[in-house]
Simulated scan of single mutants.
Amino acid sequence: MQPPQHATRPRWWTELPLIALVYGAYTAGRLIVRGNEPLAVEHGLSILRIEKALHLNAEHPLNRLFTHTPALGIPADFIYGSLHYLVTPAVLIWLFHRRPTRYRAARGWLMTSTLLGLIGFTFLPTCPPRLLPAVHGFTDTMAQYSSYGWWGGEASAPRGMGGMTNQFAAMPSLHVGWALWCGVMLWRFGGSRMTKTVAVAYPLTITFVVMGTANHYLLDAVAGAAVMGLGLLLSKPLMRLAERVRTRFAPVSSSTRASIVSAGCETSAGERIPGQRTSSDTPAEADDSTASTAR
Score class of each variant (00 low, 15 high):
Thr207Glu: 03
Thr256Pro: 11
Thr8Gln: 10
Glu266Val: 09
Leu21Asp: 09
Phe96Ala: 14
Leu72His: 01
Pro283Met: 04
Ala25Leu: 07
Leu124Glu: 05
Leu86Ser: 08
Ser279Pro: 15
Ser289Asp: 14
Thr112Arg: 01
Pro4Gly: 15
Gly137Asp: 02
Thr14Gln: 08
Leu204Ile: 12
Tyr148Lys: 11
Leu204Asp: 02
Ile74Phe: 00
Arg257Val: 09
Glu59Leu: 06
Arg64Ser: 09
Ser280Cys: 06
Asn215Pro: 10
Met142Leu: 13
Gly117Trp: 00
Tyr202Met: 06
Gly149Ser: 09
Gly231Trp: 04
Gln5Trp: 08
Leu83Ile: 15
Leu204Tyr: 04
Ser268Pro: 12
Leu92Pro: 14
Leu241Pro: 15
Phe121Arg: 10
Gly275Lys: 01
Pro61Leu: 00
Trp13Lys: 08
Asn166Tyr: 04
Glu154Cys: 15
Ser255Asp: 14
His84Ser: 14
Ala201Gln: 01
Thr290Ala: 09
Leu48Pro: 13
Val210Phe: 00
Ala170Cys: 07
Ala155Asn: 12
Arg98Cys: 11
Glu154Gly: 13
Glu59Asn: 07
Arg107Ser: 14
Met1Pro: 15
Val210Leu: 01
Val91Pro: 13
Ala76Met: 05
His55Pro: 08
Ser280Arg: 02
Leu219Phe: 05
Gly29Gln: 00
Glu15Val: 12
Ser146Lys: 03
Ser113Pro: 15
Val261Cys: 14
Leu219Pro: 08
Asp220Met: 04
Ile79Arg: 02
Ala214Lys: 03
Asp220Gly: 07
Tyr103Met: 12
Gln2Asn: 13
Val209Leu: 02
Tyr202Phe: 13
Val184Lys: 00
Ala40Val: 12
Leu62Pro: 13
Phe96His: 14
Leu86Gln: 02
Ala53Asp: 03
Gly152Phe: 03
Pro89His: 04
Leu132Met: 08
Asp281Ser: 06
Arg30Trp: 00
Lys52Ala: 15
Arg104Phe: 06
Gly117Asn: 06
Ser254Phe: 06
Ser147Val: 15
Leu118Lys: 06
His6Val: 15
Gly162Glu: 00
Thr114Glu: 06
Leu92Lys: 03
Glu154Asp: 13
Thr88Asp: 05
Thr247Phe: 10
Ser46Cys: 11
Lys196Tyr: 03
Tyr202Arg: 04
Leu218Cys: 11
Gly108Arg: 00
Leu116Thr: 12
Pro203Val: 10
Pro17Lys: 00
Gly163Ala: 07
Ser255Cys: 15
Thr278Ser: 11
Gly177Phe: 01
Ala155Leu: 07
Leu65Phe: 07
Glu243Thr: 15
Asp287Phe: 06
His68Ala: 10
Ile79His: 02
Arg34Gly: 12
Ser192Gln: 03
Ala25Gln: 04
Ala134Tyr: 01
Leu204Asn: 05
Ala28Gly: 11
Glu15Ser: 10
Val209His: 04
Ala7Asn: 07
Thr205Glu: 04
Pro75Glu: 02
Ser173Gly: 08
Ser259Cys: 13
Ser113Phe: 07
Asn57Thr: 14
Trp13Gly: 15
Ala20Phe: 05
Ser173Val: 08
Gly163Glu: 02
Gly275Phe: 03
Ile47His: 02
Val91His: 04
Arg272Gly: 13
Lys196Ser: 12
Phe138Tyr: 13
Ile206Leu: 08
Leu16Ala: 09
Ser146Thr: 14
Leu238Pro: 11
Leu218Trp: 03
Pro172Gln: 04
Met161Ala: 13
